[in-house]
Amino acid sequence: MDPFSDEALMARIRQGDLEHAGLLFERHHGALYSFFVHTTRQPAVSQDLAQDVFVRLLTYRTSYQLGARVRPWLHQIARNVLADHWKRPGNAAIPLDEAPPLPSSQSPAVELERSELRARLDGALARLNPDNRELLVLSHVSDLSYDEIAETYGITVNAARVRVCRALKAFRTLYTQHEASDELPRR
């Protein structure tokens, strides 16, 4: 086994060698942060939730089954963290028109040029049902394979493939509707 694979690092963390958690953090905190940003639309809250995933990873490290893939396990934790977040009183999804603009990975100049496109994408994504949104973020931001999505959700690989495809289709429909409604007044 590659000594620096996620699984090898997690095995060492499980034995109590917590220092190796840093490398897992470096590899995965960006994807987890994006996951929470797109599911909650609250960047500040997302920081805490992503942090909570790593705290749980360290706290419950002994529940990690040796040899199991780490990415699905981490995303299972992330989904639990998110579920716990919604259960707490006062934590509700922010309506789209009240949500602050999400941070971007693009430079300010590129961002200005693409802001309209970005707003359309965000709008379509926010209108998507939460399950489909979560699936699209897992498959297109966290870059989880169908195998890993199947493991995260406890479904078959084929079911994961079909669900992602349907979620993408639903997204496309909303994105196109949004595009059409944008263009309507100009005609």
Partner: peptide, 29 residues
């Protein structure tokens, strides 16, 4: 159309994490 949507999402969905997360994590660790 689906492939085009995939490209759009892969290009625009990733959000850069703030650097303060790193400090908070290592302090916790």
């Amino acid at each position: 159309t689906l492939i085009e949507s995939q490209v759009l999402l892969r290009t625009h969905l990733p959000v850069p994490p703030p650097s303060v997360m790193r400090t908070a994590f290592y302090t916790t660790l």
